[in-house]
Amino acid sequence: MNYISLSYWDLALASVLILANGMISIWFRLGLEKTLLINTTRMLVQLSLIGFVLKFIFVQTSPWWTIGLALIMVAVAGREVAARLTTRLKGWWSYGIGTTTMFFISISTTLLAVAFVISPDPWFAPRYVLPLLGMVLGNTLSGISLGLETLITTLKRERVSIEARIALGHKRFEAIEQPVRQALKTGMMPIINAMAASGVVSLPGMMTGQIMAGADPVEATKYQILIMFLIGGATASGTLLAVLGSAWRLSDERGRLRLDRLE
């Protein structure tokens, strides 16, 4: 690959741009400085570490290294789903629903791409599996978080109308169909919009990375199209599973609305 290697000084120079975020927060009294500092530090540490971890895993011959890191990524993504919600389900439910959904959807989507589309040799080739999984996880995580946040806020806001329907004899999922539909729509819209914009308004990250690393733009585009399909499918099915699971938990077998199961 033919690309321009970046020095740490180059990164330090670019980091000046993030100061603009801090200044906007201070100027408008948004109170985001602390979060910005923590999240920027997290990003720096996490990305630096993953660089070394990937370098190590890429030279291993056992699939267990790839599987191990994949499971850690899924577990962290599940925790992140719960962390992003302003109101969570009590106990382990938010984390459980997030992680279970992430596990089944991201693993099955990545395996599908690896087994039937890319077919690398060996099958677990971390150079393909881990970046694919990472991109699927990142986007599915956003869809699921948005979907669950919408579901919970809508159920809380529309409690009176939902309970009016329940009292009139509407069945469990009939009474909460509007919040569920709204949540699914909100979770799926970003990826649908991203598809419309990609290639015209935006050049997606993976494709840009490949092109900058010297890959043929046409080949890079093919990979990006594959990624968009994977992300689209994973986000839709992940959001569906997480929203229906949470809707099921926030109602009960007697058809009642169970907002008492929220923190």
């Binding site: 529309e158 009176v160 109308s161 939902i162 009016a164 329940i166 009292a167 009139l168 004899g169």
Partner: peptide, 19 residues
């Protein structure tokens, strides 16, 4: 079945709900 019970025993809240 809960929906059948509520069709026979109907509750009307003081706060009306519309969807």
């Amino acid at each position: 079945a809960p929906h059948n019970w509520r069709r026979k025993v109907r509750f009307l809240s003081a706060e009306s709900g519309w969807w």
